[in-house]
Structure formats: structure tokens, C-alpha cells
Design a protein around this nucleic acid. Structure first.
Lengths: 205, 205
DNA sequence: CGTAGTTCTCTAACACCGTAAGAGGGAGAT
DNA sequence: ATCTCCCTCTTACGGTGTTAGAGAACTACG
């Protein structure tokens, strides 16, 4: 079975999932494919193009996960669901947000925006508002997941008391949000995303 | 004049500003300081710690640029100004957003959030709402500037017609926003940020 | 059948990277 | 005069992306 571009990309994504984006090197990837590193250059222009292709793959999954528009509203609720799907797709892969935010040349990013904006406009929203809303939602979500996926600091984690001393308001707010209540990180994103989109809800407890 | 940590960090930031984050290597940095690469290890633990220090430096500038709270509202308007200051500080340095989003261990990020949340709470906002709002604003802004600062694709830029064919809604909305009107990228950020924070305005034209 | 061409993988090498180990110079204190 | 601390040096290791070019295997053509 000969090597082809698809197998290279699949294995690259698997490698990133297992070891993280920083460990993706052409030599390691080649070894996993039982091949020498320069061989990859036959199937891929260079590493940067490989990274772009990975970003495309991740975005494809995100786009595929977006639910079809339904319901009645002006589409804000649908956009909210689309952002949930985007976040889920990014979380599906280790460093997913870094992959797509680092891509130099990925038209799939634009596809996501375009279909989102088109859907909103089709449902009656002003084009200018739609663009603004999609831009806000998309960049907010990427920034959010980027933070969620950022690895913890290298040294020993700072103690809870130290954090409480330096960030009293934040730690108390975090504590109030999670402890006792059965809320999860997913709920926090939902609340934040609804807020960013100007949607009601974010159900007070 | 002996080398010290401060001079190393200053020169590193200058190097990043001139050449971009990808070109920051210990050898190049050392050469600019008329020193050999391993010498830097006397002043800095390793490259990762250096990057964290750069992130701290950038965030310090952002924090310093935040205006003192004033006025009357519940603080949302002030937070909006704080986000503008954050964006401006990130734009001040090449790859500013990447620098702070890549930092593994920077407490200054937390300082920004903490003072923002404390300010909002002090002005009467519910702690939970304040946290959510600050989180939304901060991550939105970082995601936004990350996109603003991402370099153009390597090859020749795709033609306007190609873009219009693939992204009709988006290109039309962009055109409507900028052409003719005297609006700038700064205005677009302002509109988007106000939307994300639930502030009125984003003056319809 | 032979030969030419295409497709894929190989080896060898280059320049660069972060980083470790340890030698040594120079200044100040004992 | 020696000891000690601070700072810089040389040397080296294993890793990186990438290029150049040789060569094997297969296909198509005369």
C-alpha cells in the first residue's frame, strides 16, 4: 500500500492528538509512516502547507458539525449552536485552536464565516449586523478554546492560597460558579457565548 | 556595561518587533547583544521563560494603558475602554497577541482580569456577571487581535473576484462597511467589542 | 522485447535550533 | 596571594526543516 497525501495528513493529525502540536516533526511523522523524512516532501509541499491542511481538516469537522438552521428566531440561536459545534470540534483535537489560529492560508475558516453570515442574512438579519455578530462569535470562540487548551505552567501549580491572595475577586467568582452547583466548563462557555451574542438566558442560579 | 536580564528582554522584544516572533532565536538575540548564545542562559532560565517574560512585558503595557474608572455607568463602558487599551497594547508589538496567548506562565494575564473584575464589582455589578463579562471581553479581544496580526498567506493573494465568488455575503458586507464610509479597522473593533459586551451604539450609518 | 518516462523512496548533506558541561577571565574580599 | 563570585567563553549533542540527487519499481510506447 503506497503512501499518499491523505495517509500523511491522517497520521499527522493522530500524532498531534497524541503528543501535541509541538511534537509534530517531519522526522517523527515519517517514522510513524515507516518512511524517511524527505519522502514526505513528495506528498506535501512543506511543513507550513501541512499545518494548513491540518487546519482545513479540523475546520471541515467543525463545519460538518454545524446543525442545519431551524426554528423561528432571527438566527442568533442558530449561531449559538454553530459556535458550540465549533468549540466541540476544536476540543476534539489536542491543540485544535492553535492549529486553526496558526494556519496561514486556510479558506475553510472563511467558509465557516460565510455560511454563518449567509444563514443569518437569509433569516432576515441585516448584513452588517450579521457580519459583526459572526466575527464576534467566531473570534471569541477561538480565543476561548485557545485558553481552554493552553497547557498548565511547567513548574508546580501555585497553591490555592496564593491564587486567592493575588486574585481574590476572580477566585471567589470561579468558586461560586462551580462549587456546589453542578456546572461544568461547557456551561461556562454556553453562558459566555450567549452573553457575547446578546442572547437571553445564561440562566441565573 | 555588563549585560543584564533587562537588556536581554528589551532586545528580545525589539527583535520580535522588527523580525517577528518566528525569527526570535537565542543565537540571533545573542548576536545582537554581542555575546554568544549560551551566555543568555546566565540571565534567563531558558527560552520558554524568556517568552513568558515577553508576555509579561506586553501585558504590563496593556495594564498601564487602561484608563482609571470614571463616569457613572455600571462599568461596562469602562471595560470597553480597557479592551481598547488591551488591543492597542497588543498591536503595538508585532505578534503581540501570539506572544501573550503562547505564554505558559504569565500572572499578568490574571492581573488584568482581576483588576477588571474588581472594578466592575466595585461599581455594583454582580460578581458572576462581572467574571463572565471580563472573560468574554478578554478572550474576544485576544482572538480578534490574533486574527488582525496573522500574516497574509505566502503565495500571491487570491484575486478579488475569487474571493467574491467564494464568499459573496462576507465580501459584500465588508465592502459596505468600509468603502465610501471613512471607517477603519479600529472602528470595526469598537463596533464588535460593543456588541460583545452588550453595549448600545455601534452607530448604524 | 527494449527503452523511455513517470512515480515514489532513498541517502547524504546543510544550516539552523535549544541546550548542557565545563573552562577561564576578571574583580573584590580575606 | 589566594579564594570566591560573577559572567562569558568554547565545545558539543541531538534535534529541526529542507535541498539535491541517485535509484528502484512500474507503465506505456515503438
Amino acid at each position: 500500500m503506497p503512501l499518499n497525501r491523505e495517509r500523511v495528513l491522517d497520521e499527522a493529525l493522530r500524532l498531534v492528538d497524541e503528543e501535541g502540536l509541538d511534537r509534530l516533526s517531519l522526522r517523527i511523522l515519517a517514522a510513524r509512516l515507516n518512511v524517511q523524512a524527505p519522502t514526505l516532501y513528495w506528498h506535501v509541499k512543506n511543513k507550513s502547507e501541512l499545518l494548513d491542511a491540518l487546519a482545513d481538516a479540523v475546520m471541515d469537522e467543525a463545519i460538518a458539525a454545524v446543525p442545519p438552521p431551524a426554528g423561528v428566531g432571527d438566527g442568533r440561536e442558530w449561531l449559538f449552536e454553530a459556535l458550540r459545534a465549533l468549540r466541540a470540534a476544536l476540543l476534539q483535537h489536542r491543540d485544535g485552536a492553535r492549529i486553526i489560529s496558526g494556519a496561514r492560508d486556510s479558506l475553510r475558516r472563511g467558509d465557516f464565516s460565510e455560511t454563518a453570515m449567509a444563514t443569518l442574512v437569509q433569516r432576515g438579519m441585516d448584513a452588517r449586523d450579521a457580519r459583526l455578530l459572526v466575527l464576534v462569535g467566531e473570534r471569541f470562540t477561538v480565543g476561548w478554546v485557545l485558553e481552554e487548551q493552553s497547557p498548565p505552567p511547567e513548574g508546580p501549580a501555585p497553591s490555592v492560597e496564593q491564587l486567592r491572595a493575588r486574585f481574590p475577586v476572580a477566585t471567589r467568582a470561579i468558586g461560586d460558579y462551580f462549587t456546589g452547583t453542578g456546572r461544568t466548563a461547557d456551561d461556562l462557555f454556553d453562558d459566555a457565548a450567549r452573553l457575547a451574542l446578546g442572547l437571553p438566558g445564561a440562566g441565573r442560579s
